[in-house]
Amino acid sequence: MVKKTDTESELEKKYRILIENMGEGLCVLDKNFAPTFVNPKFYEITGYPKDELLGKPVFQFVKGGSRKILKKELGKRRKGQSSRYTIKVRKKSGEEIFLLISGVPRFDEKGKFAGTIAIVSDITERKRLEKELEERTMELEKEVEKRARLLVDLYRGVAVSEERSRLAQEIHDSLAQTLATSFLKTEMCEKLLGDNQVQAKKELSELRKLLTKSIKSTRHVIFGLQLPNFHRAGFTAVLKQYFQEFQRKSGIMCDLKVKLERSLAVRTQVGIYRIIREAMNNVRKHAMAKRVDLVLRTDKKGDLHLIIEDDGKGFDLKQSLARSKYAKRFGLKGMMEQAKRLGGTFTVETAKRQGTRIKVKVPLKK
């Protein structure tokens, strides 16, 4: 026979000490969900004295949505189910608190439902911190959104400034010079009309050609101000339309190959489109090319590659870059900066009478 080391009364005493000193509230409910026993921590949490708790249905201490939750959860006990849930109650003082309750069912010797035992924790402070964290997160999100808008506005401002500089150079290189020459021709015609009408007619004919050129340049500058709607038409479709129009107006044969395995961000589409447009503008104005080949593709590493190659007269790259005005004229600086803003690289391969090849590589974010 095994000798017992603890009597039942000693075990009961130990359990009572444990229950009375535990950090959570303990509540024993009968089959009508009225407390028959609560430990000191439960009194401390709720603020109610013993005589106001024992024998009173717990529903009278809970109101609103929390009462519905409590009824639903206690209904599970009759079915033999345990659960864990959170409700909001009022302490004796009127202060609202949040309780995390873990409940299990009780059954008597005959297997009939006898009530429930619940462990109750006051999580009011945790809820307060969660709410504070949520509010702080919302504030941070608003601040991030605000700063993002500022960055977008700043980027737009920089882009507008750069576009103005590009257009100013474009107007200076073509339209302004042509109009200045036209003005001189007009003055010359005024002087010749009385003395040499034959020469005056010749000068007027030249003037007409210059004005026609100015009209074309003006239309080109206006066209340069416009950006297509990539979202509506699709980036590849926009490029195809641009090259068809370029070939029709310039008479230069164009071959376009686009193979994109992933979609491009709008910012990338705009940047690449501007590089292409500037490069093609250079071909039209300076290269004396008969053919242009363009390849735009993505690779397995997630990089975007752009190659534009013409069979034109080419130029001395070192000499062109050394002369800032010449570099601006050819738009090299603008294309380099555009590629840099996209986080990419820009290279030019050219030599006199050997055509020009432009390469752009842009890493795409995952």
Results as ranks from 00 to 15, higher is better:
13 K>N: 04
17 I>T: 12
23 G>K: 12
23 G>W: 11
24 E>Y: 05
26 L>P: 00
43 Y>M: 15
45 I>A: 10
49 P>S: 07
50 K>G: 02
55 G>I: 00
63 K>V: 08
64 G>S: 10
71 K>A: 07
79 K>Y: 13
80 G>E: 00
81 Q>V: 11
85 Y>Q: 08
85 Y>T: 05
93 S>N: 15
93 S>T: 14
94 G>S: 09
97 I>V: 15
106 R>V: 13
112 K>W: 13
114 A>W: 10
120 V>L: 01
121 S>P: 00
121 S>C: 09
124 T>M: 01
127 K>E: 09
127 K>H: 07
138 M>G: 07
138 M>T: 11
141 E>T: 09
153 D>E: 14
158 V>N: 10
166 R>T: 03
179 L>I: 00
180 A>E: 13
182 S>C: 00
191 K>N: 06
193 L>N: 01
194 G>M: 08
202 K>L: 12
204 L>K: 00
210 L>R: 07
218 T>R: 04
229 N>T: 05
231 H>V: 14
245 E>L: 15
250 S>N: 07
253 M>V: 14
253 M>C: 12
255 D>K: 13
255 D>S: 11
259 K>I: 11
260 L>T: 06
263 S>P: 02
265 A>Y: 08
266 V>N: 14
266 V>H: 15
267 R>A: 13
276 I>T: 09
278 E>Q: 12
289 A>W: 00
290 K>H: 14
291 R>A: 02
296 L>F: 00
297 R>Y: 09
298 T>E: 09
301 K>T: 12
302 G>I: 01
311 D>S: 08
312 G>Q: 08
314 G>N: 03
319 Q>L: 14
321 L>P: 00
322 A>K: 13
322 A>Q: 14
324 S>C: 06
327 A>R: 11
335 M>T: 07
338 Q>C: 12
342 L>D: 05
347 T>G: 04
350 T>R: 01
355 G>F: 03
356 T>A: 00
357 R>V: 15
364 L>P: 06
